[in-house]
Nucleic acid binder design. Structure first.
Lengths: 217, 217
DNA sequence: CATTATATTTAGGCTACCCTAAAAATATAT
DNA sequence: ATATATTTTTAGGGTAGCCTAAATATAATG
């Protein structure tokens, strides 16, 4: 049985590995968990003993199969709860994360699976991220970001990359949410900023950084 | 901010005080939390420093107003979650407790209040225990138990005193649940056991101990 | 009231995490 | 390749909670 803290380490390592497949560095883990590198070194020893990670001193960390299973189960719970919070309890995009970080550690297979059924086995969480199923399968496919669109193209918002509340607030002001239809009017050659039309309605200009953080279809 | 462990201590002290108003003893707390008296002594010092309890060495413990507020909020969350588990996720009586013990520690006022609203502001949990409202008010009224009924009386099950899974399984076999109608046919003078008719249907004999653990109206 | 039994606290020690500062390994730059 | 910078690990220490064993208070009994 793993502690809450150990679960969080595994989750961080898993997420870092999705980004860079060569493994997670001590410093990167420390940053993600708001802790110090020395604490991470400490923990890595413990996780190694529990056979949750592959680890050699001074080298990047990878998860074992058991470690991966734990991480995915946490991710599944996190995203199911986010779905619950938004769909059933009317939470807003930027309010769900902190609560889901707590709920993801509740230990009860029955709870997770019943919740999944109660929600109608959703495939994506409110940010458009895929929800692993009971067996831990989920699509990790690369998704297209808005900055890859061309002038005149019409797209649908299917997810966000950045999860900061600053970004969520910005999107809310623009009335952009999952399912919103966008049309790229013009792309500024100088800084790659875009003039976009939102829901066949208002037209605004967004920076390329914003465009890079919106998944579209 | 209190730790999960501290919250559990406060909850235990609160529950013990409901039973005996003179305060909770070190040993009683230890037993309730499956820990040792010495650990309790330890913790009492910490809770005293945080002004959560009234405590003098070798004397019973009582909660301060802040301590009481914390305990009631935990109780509120516990019972709301039990309601959720039974009503929405189809958990059975004896399956809810362990999960609710985890969920009761989730920190989010918004979550608790939205859950309350989502459930329709229920007044009682699935065992018939009252759910404190936002302000922490809830009835602590003495409830009548089945053993106080007289021959020929018809009653409605409104709650259970014992919360063990053995008792829940027993009740399930008898098809007794909240709202079940009972009729007391005869009371055996010797051991106070009762012959009862369940839901205008089967007739069974139950011991006086069972009768003492059923709240009726 | 003295004695014995029980309840509670203290003393000392353990583990899981966390930290800072110093040492060691690795990576980068001249 | 040597010097410097960065990353990672170790050493040593702190706190929250837990434990056992011993000491002390309180309660019960003859």
């Amino acid at each position: 049985m793993l502690s809450l803290t150990e679960e969080n380490y595994l989750k961080s390592i898993f997420v870092l590995n999705l980004e860079k497949s060569e493994g997670a560095s001590t410093n990167a883990i420390a940053e993600k968990l708001n802790t110090k590198a020395s604490s991470v070194s400490d923990m890595l020893k413990r996780l190694l003993k529990k056979e949750m990670i592959h680890y050699k001193k001074y080298q990047a960390v990878k998860l074992t199969d058991s470690g991966k299973a734990v991480a995915v189960s946490i991710l599944r719970k996190h995203r199911l709860w986010e779905h619950f919070l938004v769909e059933k309890l009317h939470f807003k995009w930027d309010e769900v994360h902190d609560v889901a970080e707590q709920l993801e550690h509740i230990r009860s297979k029955k709870l997770t699976d019943q919740l999944d059924a109660f929600l109608g086995h959703p495939k994506f969480d409110p940010h458009g991220d895929p929800i692993p199923d009971k067996e831990g399968n989920f699509p990790v496919k690369m998704r297209q970001t808005l900055d890859q669109a061309i002038e005149g193209q019409e797209v649908l918002i299917v997810g966000v990359k950045d999860h900061s509340s600053e970004f969520f607030n910005y999107l809310e002001r623009l009335e952009i949410e999952l399912g919103t239809k966008l049309k790229v009017k013009t792309i500024n050659q100088f800084d790659a900023s875009m003039e976009i039309e939102i829901n066949q309605n208002e037209t605004t200009t967004i920076s390329s950084e914003v465009a890079q953080n919106l998944f579209v279809k």
